[in-house]
Design a protein around this nucleic acid. Structure first.
Length: 567
DNA sequence: GCCGTTTTCGGCCCGACTGTTTTCAGTCG
């Protein structure tokens, strides 16, 4: 029996209980028990006192004992035999929760989305107390919608939408200030919706403006403080706007940035002090409400350092406050080691990339165009690469404030060989090895290819190690723990590719890399000067894995970097 | 269902919005 299975079982039990219309506190007790296990860093074998953990009592404890002793939970088995599995997907229908689904099942024997659709169409649902004609229409629309709209939208799809909304909000005079909040602000890879906080003295006016200037497909809700809409366009997405007074802004921003778990932890802390946190401020026992100028002030009020949005996740961040000052920040970044120019598939010349990098304040960068194999990207032949090296040398001589190194993003070919011979590689300052082809090979073959690169003495780094595109393709499925072991053995850098399409390696893998003590480079893989800005999302994503400055190659000084690439 | 150094019973984070009601339940974040 492993911990994951126990956690999953407890969560599944909670789900089934919800579908029975159970007491929500009872349901959340099972979720909490699952979370207690999740947050405990120890493996199942290392935990000798599971049943004495806070949050695990008689009922949840017996589920765990069942799983360890028998291999299955009698409670879950019982629930599964009484609750039809067809009710589970019904929870995905907006407007339907456990109570209503339980009622629909109990009164009308509705046990699937299909059955619900039919019952609505034949007007059987409106006969139930608490349901009416309008509900049937809404349910039918939501069921219809369920197939067409994806559950989560990737960060790279949201990015241009957020930018569009920001430009619209900036042009509304009645808005004092605004910020994106929610999981997008926490740099989650994908989000269910986008949240915005708006400070205004005239919320009604702003509400009307919003509905006018945005490409609204559907209004989900439009109250005095909340406007929820579905935006049309290439990518349909739900957006929530919260309209608050200027003095409530910091509290609202904090509240709607979440995460939910982080907020709950903060509220518990406040409660112990006899205070109450809401999205409008902190209420004291005598009823007065304290407001804050900024989120920093809000945390300071509870004697806490500023906690960046990116690490506000499962609540465990409040036990790692001593690490906050070591977290990697954009200010620590001294260089970018993976970018393309017009020599291969980039949009800008070497000089333009250098100039754009100088405005970032970098002390060193590496130009890494594609190699010969990648014809679609105009990959460089060895002759062109040698010529580029000369060109970079000449250009570099013109600059005193930035050092430009010659590199390559060399393909690891499908047959496991490398695209350039050692004779060429040893002349380069920095060598990246990447897989761009034959993703569907069996894992052993993929690992064989990666190992060839790892063993090559002239390779410095493996780029986008899994090849994933967020929410779109999984990549080539390497055995990442083994890859990390090799990186340690052969002294290689692993990349956190900062392109929002990739964010590769992902958080859970980055944590392993840190544990192994393998250096990580955060690189934009920029094909355009505008994409150099991806360093920011990369750094903020790295914070989610609690990457410290010392784990990240980009924080090294020019001298330290030179030493590494020369060995 | 779980918890407890004011508590073994009563509260569990808190508030907005909708659709159903005619003062509130359910859902959502």
């Amino acid at each position: 029996m492993d911990k994951k299975t126990i956690i999953k079982t407890l969560e599944k039990i909670a789900l089934y209980m919800e579908l029975q219309g159970e007491n929500p506190f009872k349901v959340s007790a099972f979720r909490k028990a699952a979370q207690v296990l999740e947050l405990d860093a120890r493996s199942l074998a290392e935990m000798d006192n599971i049943l004495s953990l806070k949050g695990i009592g008689a009922a949840t404890g017996s589920v765990i004992e069942d799983l360890i002793n028998v291999g299955e939970s009698s409670l879950l088995v019982e629930l599964q035999s009484t609750v039809p599995s067809g009710l589970l997907p019904m929870l995905k229908i907006p407007g339907l929760g456990g109570k209503k689904i339980a009622k629909l099942y109990k009164e009308l024997q509705i046990d699937s989305i299909e059955a619900l659709k039919e019952a609505c169409e034949t007007n059987k649902v409106q006969a139930l107390a608490g349901f009416a004609a309008k509900t049937e229409v809404k349910l039918l629309a939501e069921i219809e919608n369920l197939q067409s709209k994806p559950e989560r939208t990737a960060v790279w799809q949201l990015e241009p939408i957020v930018a569009m909304i920001e430009s619209k909000l900036a042009a509304i005079p009645a808005i004092d200030k605004f910020s994106v909040a929610g999981s997008y602000r926490r740099v989650k890879e994908a989000s269910k919706d986008i949240d915005f906080i708006i400070a205004t003295a005239t919320p009604k006016e702003v509400r009307e403006e919003l509905l006018k200037v945005l490409p609204v497909l559907k209004i989900i809700a439009a109250g005095d403080t909340k406007v929820s809409i579905t935006l049309g366009g290439e990518q349909e997405v739900d957006v929530d706007f919260r309209l608050v007074e200027a003095r409530q802004y910091a509290s609202a921003l904090n509240h709607f940035t979440g995460s939910k778990d982080h907020n709950i932890k903060m509220r518990q802390i406040a409660k112990e002090q006899g205070k109450k946190i809401s999205e409008y401020g902190v209420e004291l026992e005598d009823g007065t409400v304290v407001h804050f100028e900024s989120e920093k002030d809000f945390y300071a009020y509870f004697n806490l350092p500023f906690i960046p949005p990116t690490v506000r996740e499962d609540g465990s961040e409040l036990t790692k406050l001593d690490q906050l000052s070591k977290l990697i920040t954009l200010d620590d970044i001294k260089g970018d080691f993976h970018m393309h120019t017009t020599w291969s598939d980039g949009a800008h010349s070497i000089e333009e990339m250098i100039e754009a990098s100088r405005t970032k304040g970098y002390s060193h960068i590496v130009i890494t165009d594609h190699s010969n194999y990648l014809k679609v990207a105009n990959g460089l032949s060895k002759e062109r690469l040698l010529k580029q090296m000369e060109t970079i040398k000449e250009i570099n001589a013109k600059y005193t404030d930035i050092e430009v190194f010659s590199g390559t993003e060399m393909d690891i070919l499908p047959d496991g060989s490398l695209d350039f011979e050692d004779e060429i590689l040893k002349q380069l300052d920095f060598v990246i090895a990447s897989i761009h082809s034959s993703f569907s090979q069996p894992q052993e073959k993929i690992m064989e290819r990666l190992q060839t690169a790892m063993k090559n003495p002239y390779v410095h780094m493996i780029a986008h190690p899994t090849g994933r595109i967020i929410e779109q393709r999984d990549g080539y499925n390497p055995d990442v723990p083994t890859l990390i072991e090799w990186a340690k053995e052969y002294g290689k850098i692993l990349e956190l590719n900062a392109s929002p399409y990739r964010l590769d390696l992902k958080t859970e893998h980055l944590k392993l890399v840190v544990e192994a003590g393998v250096p990580i480079a955060i690189n934009t893989d920029a094909h355009h000067i505008d994409q150099l800005k991806y360093m920011e999302i990369g750094v903020r994503y790295a914070q989610k894995a609690w990457l410290h400055k010392e784990n990240v190659v980009n924080t090294w000084t020019l001298e330290q970097f030179k030493q590494f690439i020369q060995k």
